[in-house]
Design a protein around this nucleic acid. Structure first.
Lengths: 154, 154
DNA sequence: GATGATTCCCCATAACTACCCACAATCTAT
DNA sequence: ATAGATTGTGGGTAGTTATGGGGAATCATC
């Protein structure tokens, strides 16, 4: 059985070059659905990392944003914050995407990066920052973490 | 690489020159549908910024205004306020549009501007004013904001 | 009608981006 | 084990994009 389209798993350690390009693992490129047209949308993650959506996934988010009313100030703020950092990127012949300088800075990316499959999207991390974040979080909610695990892991 | 037509995302930092011209990001110009005929309609935003609509989107708003009755004073006021600040503008060979002096003043535009894709339209901000507005808003409705995020972000 | 201001259109240039090719490392298959 | 294909990394170049300014055409004013 093959995995569903647009399903990403596993961890890869790649480098980001002087021009801000990062390789997308070949397996992820193969998992990308044809309708996404070799295109991802990169944006700020909720954590200090870059989120990489398949184009089709992002289009769905956009379609939900279109439903929001421009009359409500809360909705305007939400739309603004959601689309503001989002950029569509196509990968080149070598399978790399260009990370915008502002996202490189946001995620604190240096030379080496961790690329992590997150089922419906991909995360790009600086290894040091990820480790720090994990350490801080684990102490806080380890009990809740176990409860969640019991529900989900068979 | 083509997103849906008339779909704008991302943030750009451009300058407004002495003649009141601002560049429309190349990606936005490419996203503009052919029927819009290189034309946008600029008007006052609900916030202190300039709203830039693709011509086709604006025509849709106009068609809805036509449905309103000129007999109701409320409707007349609404029609008046909606159309009075709206100006169609075509971009020049270099991709710039001319912002009318009254809109420059309304949005408090100085030298440098932020251009933000808002899915179906574009916003032009003075960076300082935007930052102030964000600060003020975040304190007010952060809980509602999170609720919205949970619904929409996958 | 002449003068001055404004708008529009075109050109020039510097910075940036997308695209291309090269090569080394890794994996696959015989 | 070796050859061939694929994958990851680096850099060069042509084309595009952002920004400034000049001059003709248009409009308002006296």
């Amino acid at each position: 059985m093959t995995l569903t389209e647009n399903t990403f798993s596993g961890e890869y350690s790649y480098s980001i070059d002087a021009k801000g390009r990062v390789n997308i693992p070949a397996k992820f490129r193969q998992a990308l659905s044809a309708e996404s047209d070799n295109t991802f949308v990169i944006t700020r993650g909720m954590d200090r990392c870059v989120w990489v959506y398949p184009l089709t996934e992002w289009k769905f988010i956009e379609s939900e944003l279109r439903e929001l009313s421009s009359l409500a100030s809360l909705h305007r703020t939400f739309i603004r914050n959601t689309t503001r950092y989002a950029t569509p990127v196509t990968y080149d012949k070598q399978g790399r995407i260009q990370i915008t300088p502002s996202l490189v800075e946001f995620a604190g990316l240096k030379k080496s990066t961790l690329i992590i499959g997150m089922v419906n999207k991909i995360e790009i991390w600086d290894p040091v920052i990820l480790k720090k974040m994990e350490k801080a979080n684990l102490e806080i909610d380890s009990a809740d973490y176990d409860t969640l695990a019991e529900k989900i892991i068979l």
